[in-house]
């Protein structure tokens, strides 16, 4: 395949993200990468569960009093919806409708930003109202590390998707960038799945225990 073929927008097959060997490799490699990320988050969850409500000789606010489910619920809705909108984007990619894909990716980014805003507010609130900080006690360290790693992933995902959108805004979809969009959206789904676990293990179980 010549370079021109790679960069044209009028020759796209049904699944442009997997049409080239490079695309197939990226697709598979990224899935494996997410497998590694799963172990990463599993280790963070393990640490969190071991140190949950563990204050040692210090004073701290236990999870039952600390967490407020209202905000977390809104965050969950925002992030889950953003996963759905990124599915729409990929749907339009498969139908070669670049404009609509960009549109839905844009919505995804906005929802992600909304989530991030809430999270920053949440952390701010914990620190100022409850003195629940990273350095106060082991529970604080474990909480901010787990939830913060997820937040960091959100930031990276937003930068990534935005970069792709801007870079390709003028030239449209082609065999070269389709896999890039696709794996960015995979990454976004993964972030979403991790959040579902954080919502359950950290917040819901924190409220009951």
């Amino acid at each position: 395949m010549t370079h021109d073929d790679m960069l044209r927008s009028d020759n796209l097959p049904h699944e442009p993200e997997k049409a080239t060997l490079e695309g197939k490799n990226k697709f598979l490699g990224f899935w494996f990468f997410l497998g590694g990320e799963t172990v990463l988050f599993a280790s963070l969850f393990g640490t969190y569960l071991a140190l949950k409500n563990s204050f040692g000789g210090t004073e701290g606010v236990p999870t039952t009093e600390l967490y407020g489910l209202e905000l977390v619920f809104i965050m969950t809705v925002l992030l889950l919806t953003s996963s759905l909108t990124s599915v729409y984007a990929m749907y339009h990619m498969k139908n070669h409708d670049f404009k609509k894909m960009q549109l839905w990716l844009g919505v995804t980014v906005l929802l992600g930003l909304g989530f991030l805003g809430c999270e920053i507010y949440e952390f701010y609130h914990y620190v100022h109202e409850y003195h629940h900080t990273f350095t106060a006690h082991a529970f604080g360290s474990a909480f901010y590390t787990l939830v913060g790693f997820h937040g960091g992933h959100v930031v990276f995902g937003l930068l990534w998707i935005t970069t792709l959108m801007i870079r390709n805004a003028k030239r449209g979809l082609n065999l070269y960038n389709a896999p890039k969009f696709y794996i960015a959206s995979l990454y976004w789904h993964f972030i979403d799945v991790v959040w579902v676990f954080i919502f359950t293990v950290v917040y819901l179980m924190g409220k009951v225990a």
Binding site: S54, G56, H137
Partner: peptide, 9 residues
Amino acid sequence: NFFKPEMGG
């Protein structure tokens, strides 16, 4: 404080 027992680690 992950590994500091006096702080709950």
